[in-house]
Structures are given as structure tokens and as C-alpha cells.
Design a protein around this nucleic acid. Structure first.
Lengths: 215, 215
DNA sequence: ATGCAAATTCTTGTATACAAGATGATTGAC
DNA sequence: GTCAATCATCTTGTATACAAGAATTTGCAT
């Protein structure tokens, strides 16, 4: 197993909650677990640290760093803004083929909602957003959006299981597709922002206001 | 010298154009240069690769990856969107103290323009933007903005030396401060977006500048 | 002379040995 | 009995040795 794969495996383990916040990633244990020496483990750990999934304390070790409520809110807010930006750009550049693809994805989403298939909904929902990222025509932004999206996957999954959320999300998708078809950049951006930001915006504003006022 | 510092030093060398696109970062040479063994060099290189400043080809080595004209435009466009997002959020949350700080920074900017002090202008301009990032009250977004800002520094510096750009930039700053003071999120976002996107729209000049900077 | 192939050399990738610092345990003093 | 200091042990960090794959060079044939 190569460092890349080890890093991916570790990332996956962080995402699936196999590690808790503050857990130390012991090099020797991991080396034994993956059947390699400490060297490739250390390289994999470096990647986790740079990705922000873990924290390194000199001469102490590498520790899992799961985001707390505040940071999570901030990450969702950032994702909302990035998605809004993607919507804005996609509204100006999206192809007819991609619009069809979005409509098709939405139909599959609707079917999943009807069938109560949360995993299916989740999969098509991801596809929906990935298409929008891609249709910005900006592969750098697309990459950034995918990166943050991926980071938020475990938390988004929980989010989508909330009662009534899938249905509401569906109708937002419809609005987004219409806005993109009309080239309505502002509506596409605003709807996408709200679509992602739903749960935390007001709570976050409270926290942010309190923190700013305290200074 | 520790891997962190080595990575920072290498990053700096990439930014200052000491390396050209496609240059191979030879482990042995770097080890000799920094007076350490290959091990910490390899860890530093890992960091560069994850940061996107270099590319790793298995069994071939690590190669410097300077953005080309197209990617550079995409990065500026992304920066413009992120700055717009920062402006939007800051308009809702900025403190009076920070507004004063922005006004003060603008005054120093103006003084630098009058004195023809490009470096001073550049420094205060950076401060201006950093304050806005911070006033989003979202330290995650702030961090992302700083990261991309930093990545674009070498190209932005060139940009700011264009004839007449400093004066135009100044008047945009004034508009931004007013929008923030009024809590006008849309105007703050749109002005900031345009303020940053100028470079991308005039990409021909950027290419020319890039060639000059690379030499 | 040129093109291809084999072998040498060089570089990366991995394992291991060693150094240095941190943690925890044990022993001694109060 | 408790607290502190010192010592042992364990972990990280670095250097080096070794393995494997790439590139280059050299030699041979056309």
C-alpha cells in the first residue's frame, strides 16, 4: 500500500468517524496495521495535516481534529458562498446538455424521495451539485468546491436525513435549474446559497455577532 | 532547519520565481542546500504537493507547477468570488472599529499613491483586504481567502504596477467602505468582485507580465 | 552515421537504525 | 501519605542503508 492510498484510507477513516476528535495517530500502530514501515505512514500523516484533518504537535504526534459546532457552521457558510459563486458563473456558461443532465438528475432525485431512498437521493444530490461546479467552466473553482464538499460529506449526510429536508431540497433544486436555464445569475446564486446554508445561518450570525461584540 | 521551515522556504522560492514551471525539485540537491538529510526534504515536498504548488510523478520526482495563463485567470476569478462573499458577510457583521481601520488604511493608501510608493500601496492594500476577510466573522473563510490571496501575491504585485491601476483601485476601495458602512451587502460584494476580477479580464497583459516575472 | 537494445548509473521509495525529547513510573524526602 | 525529582521507557524526528524503477549512456548492428 502506497502513501497516497494510506492517506486516502486514513481520510476515509476520519470521515466515517472511526477516529474521534483528539485521537492520536500512532505511527507504529498504523505502520503495523497497514503492513509498512513508519516512513510511508509519516508521509500520509503529513498529507492529513496539510489537508486540515489532523493537527501536528512537535515531538508529540499527529492528532485527529474534527471540527466543532462553530467551525462546522463556518464551513457550511463558506460552502454556501462557494456554491453561490458556482451558481452565478454556471448561470452564464452552462450548456444545454448540462441543463438536461440536471433535469434528469432531479427526476432521479424525485424518484428517490418517493421511494424513501435516502442513499439514492444523496447520490443524485451530489451529482446535481457536481454538475453545477463543473459548469462554471472554472476547473480551479470546481476543484475547490469539490474539496470542501468532500470535507463536509459526513455532516451533510446527517443533515439530509432530517424530516422533510429532502422534499424542501427538491423544490430548491427545481428553482435552481430554472434560474440556470434563464441565465438568472443572481437567483441561481441566492437559491444555491440558501440551499446550502439553511440550517446554520442564523445560529452562526448569532455566534459571530457575539464574538465580534466581545472584541 | 525543520521540515515546516523548509517547506516555507521552498514555498517562498516558488513565489519569488526562483523556480520555473516544470523544474524538478531534486531531493539530494535540496538536502545538501538545507544541510539536512533527504527525509525532512521529502516531508517538505509532500506539503508543496498537497498545497498544489508542485506535482508529484511516481518514481519520477516532484516538479514545480506554476499556473499557466488559463489557470491563473481561473484563480483570479475564484479569488474575486471569494472576496465578494467576504464583502457580503462583512457588510452584515463589520464592527465600527474595523470600519475606522479601513478608512485609516485607505488614507495611507492614498498617501502612498500620492507619493508614488508602490510598495506602501501594496502593503496597505493587503491590509485592507485582510481586514475584510477578518470581518466576515468566519475564520474558516478568512483562512481560505488568505490562502488563495497568498498564492496570487506574485501575480498581484505585477498587476498593481500597471499605469493608473492604483488610482482606480483607490476609488473602488472608497466605494467598498461606503457599502460596508451602509450594510449594503450586494454593493459590497459586487464592487469587491469587480475590484479583484479586473486582472482576469485583462489576461493578455497578465500573460505578458507573467513572462517578464518568470525571467 | 543512425537507430535500437542492453547495461550502468542515478533517483525515488521504503526500511531500519539512531538521536532527542516527552511521558510516565519509581523512589526518595518531607 | 503526598509531592517532587530523577530515571526508564516510549515516541517522534532524522540519517542512512537498501530496493526498485527511470533515465542515460554505451555498444552493436544495420
Amino acid at each position: 500500500m502506497r502513501p497516497n492510498e494510506i492517506a486516502d484510507a486514513l481520510e476515509e477513516m476520519v470521515f466515517t468517524g472511526e477516529f474521534n476528535d483528539g485521537d492520536r495517530l500512532d505511527e507504529i500502530t498504523l505502520a503495523a496495521r497497514f503492513g509498512v514501515s513508519r516512513t510511508p505512514i509519516r508521509e500520509a500523516l503529513q498529507r492529513l495535516v496539510v489537508s486540515g484533518l489532523a493537527e501536528q504537535l512537535p515531538r508529540r504526534g499527529v492528532f485527529i481534529r474534527q471540527p466543532g459546532p462553530v467551525e462546522l457552521m463556518q464551513m457550511f457558510e463558506t460552502m454556501a458562498e462557494i456554491e453561490a459563486a458556482c451558481g452565478r458563473l454556471a448561470a452564464m456558461r452552462i450548456s444545454d446538455a448540462a441543463l438536461d443532465r440536471l433535469a434528469q438528475t432531479n427526476a432521479l432525485c424525485q424518484a428517490a424521495v418517493t421511494a424513501g431512498d435516502a442513499d439514492g437521493y444523496y447520490r443524485e444530490n451530489q451529482e446535481f451539485h457536481h454538475v453545477i461546479y463543473h459548469e462554471t467552466g472554472n476547473s480551479f473553482l470546481e476543484h475547490e468546491a469539490l474539496r470542501l464538499n468532500r470535507r463536509l460529506i459526513p455532516f451533510r449526510r446527517v443533515q439530509l436525513r432530517w424530516r422533510g429536508r429532502m422534499g424542501q431540497s427538491m423544490s430548491e433544486h427545481e428553482t435552481i435549474v430554472e434560474a440556470l436555464r434563464d441565465g438568472n445569475a443572481v437567483l441561481a446564486a441566492d437559491t444555491l446559497r440558501a440551499h446550502v446554508a439553511v440550517q446554520g445561518e442564523k445560529f452562526h450570525q448569532l455566534i459571530a455577532s457575539l464574538r465580534m461584540a466581545a472584541q
